[in-house]
Design a protein around this nucleic acid. Structure first.
Length: 414
RNA sequence: GUGGCUGUAGCUCAGUUGGUUAGAGCGCCGGUUUGUGGUACCGGAGGUCGCGGGUUCAAGUCCCGUUAGCCACCCCA
């Protein structure tokens, strides 16, 4: 371990990458606002209890992935591994349940102590949307439509597919779960050790096992659709119909499950095969039981989250690099006027670089390297006429303009 | 957390069966051009060969440990 390298699973985000991530966030936020989802933020850490209660004591996140600290006062706090719990907590702390329905958008860092891989870091960043207080499938449809809209705005929609499943309501799910447990218990000696573990904690997950032997067993396992009651079937049918109406293509994937008890009805994942094992790009579902689990009033909810780094890797273009105007004083005598002109241009809305030192050649070189669009040269000749030379750095053409007209002339380089 | 692969200049990589001052391209700096960048030519800087230990007369090259990245499992965004 060297103190000079970033902690495992973290990294510095330098301007080129930051610009991409910024673009992801900006496009997502603008799109979300069109749907009425307004940006909000919850703290980066919460009392550990907030996550324990919502994610459950047996989830992987709670049992081995949380960054938890003990405070002097003896309280346990945890760096948020996801944001939905925080939003639900905010709903209660702020008495927001009086204002339902609520639509929120967020973006920020999350922390999970996992083994890093490409597209998987210990500090990573997510955007997400939550819709609280809408029990109807219209909510699920709007939320998925928002996700699809953002993906297409980023140019990654083409490289994803939407996988869709239903977990039914509580009755349906519990009946199915019981049937699964019974089935797999009868064949437990044939299960992989991973799946025997899942049988205890999260039997639905066995359906998604990659183990050969497990897959054979799964092929003969009870099927969820046989356990869905009429309401659950209607709900799912409505979601599918809404997506079809919006021309959002999806594939049914009966192995797509969520482990936690409060998840119900719709579960969905936009996945890609361009990121290796990290296929989930934007994923979510309905969580009608969550707020109640935390001790709040029964409040239906749907939401999704998406990894900003993953989206950035998939984004089909580089956001444009801003091109400044370079102000270049020629000779000592013009330094002062260059300084005041620079500041004037900045106030007028231009990005301006005033080299700190060097002769004209060096400053021009630097201007070029910065990608400057134009250079404003201030020399004694120009000053004698109360003017400046404006050089177009793309075409190489330049002209002499009066100092008063510089801002006006630069307008074309905006 | 388990298993595997990898780690040489800022970046991408080459380094032959262990053998004298560790190389290239790009990038960076300087010069040709002290009032004009991008091209070209010339020159230069920059490496405890991830880190620590071991084997050996001799290790970038072999062995062990460790750390980081990557791949798969796991989990997920």
């Amino acid at each position: 371990m060297s103190a000079l390298q970033p902690v495992r699973g973290t990294r510095d985000i330098l301007p080129d990458e930051m610009r991409r991530q910024r673009a992801v966030i900006d496009i997502a936020r603008e799109t979300a606002e069109r749907y009425g989802y307004l940006e909000m933020a919850t703290p980066i850490f919460e009392f550990t209890e907030v996550f324990k209660r919502t994610l459950g004591d047996t989830s992987d996140i709670v049992t081995k992935e949380m960054y938890t600290f003990s405070m002097k006062e003896g309280e346990q706090i945890t760096l948020r591994p996801e944001n939905t719990a925080g939003v639900a907590r905010a709903l209660m702390s702020g008495g927001l349940s009086q204002q339902l329905p609520l639509k929120y958008f967020y973006a920020g860092p999350m922390f999970r102590h996992e083994r890093p891989q490409k597209g998987r870091q210990r500090q990573f960043h997510q955007i997400g949307a939550e819709l609280l207080g809408v029990p109807k499938p219209q909510g699920d449809i709007e939320l998925i439509a928002l996700g699809a809209h953002i993906l297409s705005g980023l140019g990654v929609y083409e490289n994803t597919k939407l996988e869709l499943n239903t977990l039914g309501d509580t009755d349906s799910r519990q009946a199915y779960r019981a049937a699964l447990v019974e089935y797999f218990s009868d064949h437990s000696d044939a299960l992989s050790s991973d799946s025997r573990d899942r049988l205890e904690r999260n039997p639905l997950r066995i359906l998604d096992s990659k183990n050969e032997g497990d897959r054979k067993l799964v092929a003969g396992a009870p099927v969820f659709s046989d356990y869905l009651n009429a309401e659950s079937q209607d709900f799912f049918a409505a979601v599918k119909q809404g997506l079809e109406r919006l021309n959002i293509a999806f594939e049914l994937n009966t192995r797509l499950v969520r482990g936690l008890d409060y998840y119900c009805h719709t579960a969905f994942e936009f996945t890609t095969d361009l990121l290796g094992a990290q296929s989930a790009v934007l994923a979510g579902g309905r969580y009608d039981g969550l707020v109640e689990t935390m001790g709040g009033p029964a409040t239906p909810g749907v939401g999704w989250a998406a990894g900003i780094e993953r989206l950035s890797m998939l984004m089909d273009r580089d956001p444009p690099v801003p091109r400044p105007i370079a102000v270049i004083p020629v000779g000592q005598a013009t330094e002062e006027i260059a300084l005041t002109l620079t500041q004037k241009l900045r106030h007028a809305g231009y990005g301006v670089e005033l080299g700190f030192s060097g002769n004209v050649g060096k400053r021009m070189k630097r201007a070029n390297k910065l990608g400057a669009r134009a250079a404003v040269l201030l020399g004694e000749d120009e000053l004698a006429n109360n003017s400046a030379t404006i050089r177009d750095l793309d075409s190489g053409e330049q002209e002499l303009v009066s100092l008063d007209a510089v801002i006006e002339h630069l307008a074309r380089y905006r």
